[in-house]
Design a binder for these strands. Structure first.
Length: 314
DNA sequence: CGGCTTTGACCCGCGC
DNA sequence: GCGCGGGTCAAAGCCG
């Protein structure tokens, strides 16, 4: 898992309304790169492909009978939203929504400030935010070693929704998130773009849906350079447990067995049975793109439809 | 090429 | 009025 989120990630480019637009599915938490040099797709991964738990994972931020369910987490919100006319009366009160933890704003509010919702969230909670945000500023905050980031809703230009994120200076891994204004539209069905959000939006997240759903070539494309790991392995074998007939041997060749019938082998021109493909060829060619072409075969095997099968990309 | 982050400059409210 | 500090703007550059 040293590759982290950017190592081997599979995404879905197919639209699926059941996901409420969260059509980028990150399986990285279930993709284990073990010290034994074995790359394994866990059973949970397949379960996620097929199961309904994604629905739970991508619950939107909505009101349910007066109680808020926030981003699918078990945060119970009891908003005491402060209206303008009440602001003076509550000037010395903490105008903070009940959150997992309490938070006392360190700065005074402006008079024309809109009502706000302040939460303390973990990185995972942050990463589950399904709204599309665009960062428009960052400022160092007096008294805090961490800067505050400013986001606005990027789905609609007319949307006034704002979001501030700053890391708690008292608790590591906790982020103080302030929402102001409200969205004037429904949740986006899909992210407009992933460009630029990879680097640092929520760097601590372990299962961020904001993470790029791709396979990062650089992490594996130079097995000969930093290859001590591969070559020093006793087994010298990188196996994909759920796909037993795809293996990487000592020469860093990918061996494709009969398991996938003609599918994968036909992805390589002139390849025949028991053909070996080097890792370099794998990435230089259309290996991952080709996986898409045979995903129907997987679908029939796993009994799922197109909308739930992950999208492979290189 | 569109959408994103970064970052210095600018704006604004507040306290003195 | 001035200075401080939070919030926003916008140009530049990055990324897919």
């Amino acid at each position: 898992m040293d590759w982290g989120l950017q190592a081997v990630v599979i995404g879905s480019s197919t639209s699926c309304s059941d996901f409420h637009g969260a059509n980028n599915i990150d399986f990285s938490p279930n993709l284990n790169y073990q010290e034994s040099e074995h790359l394994s797709f866990s059973h949970e991964m397949k379960k996620e492909v097929l199961g309904d738990e994604l629905e739970e994972l991508y619950k939107p931020f909505y009101h349910v009978g007066g109680q808020n369910t926030f981003m699918g987490s078990s945060i119970s919100l009891v908003p005491k939203e402060v209206k303008e006319e009440q602001r003076e009366e509550q000037r010395h009160e903490q105008q903070v929504v009940a959150a997992p933890r309490t938070y006392v704003p360190k700065y005074k509010k402006r008079k024309n400030e809109q009502k706000r919702v302040v939460l303390e969230l973990t990185a995972d909670d942050l990463s589950s935010d399904k709204w599309a945000w665009r960062k428009y500023g960052q400022k160092p905050i007096k008294g805090s070693p961490y800067p505050r980031s400013y986001y606005r809703c990027s789905t609609s230009k007319g949307c006034l929704a704002r979001k501030q994120v700053e890391q708690s200076c008292t608790e590591t891994g906790i982020f103080i998130v302030t929402y102001s204004a409200e969205h004037n539209h429904s949740q986006p069905t899909r992210r407009n773009s992933l460009a630029g959000i990879i680097k640092s939006k929520f760097p601590n997240s372990k299962n961020s849906i904001n993470s790029p759903k791709k396979i990062v070539k650089e992490k594996i494309s130079s097995p000969h350079g930093s290859t001590s790991n591969l070559n020093s392995s006793p087994a010298n074998l990188l196996s994909i447990e759920e796909f037993p007939e795809i293996e990487i041997n000592q020469e860093n060749n990918i061996i494709i067995g009969d398991y996938y019938d003609e599918g994968i082998r036909n992805m390589f021109e002139g390849s025949g049975e028991n053909e070996c493909v080097s890792i370099q060829d794998m990435f230089d060619g259309d290996f991952f793109a080709g996986l898409e072409d045979i995903h129907d075969g997987f679908n029939s095997s796993f009994g799922c439809n197109n909308s739930t099968f992950p999208h492979f990309s290189s």
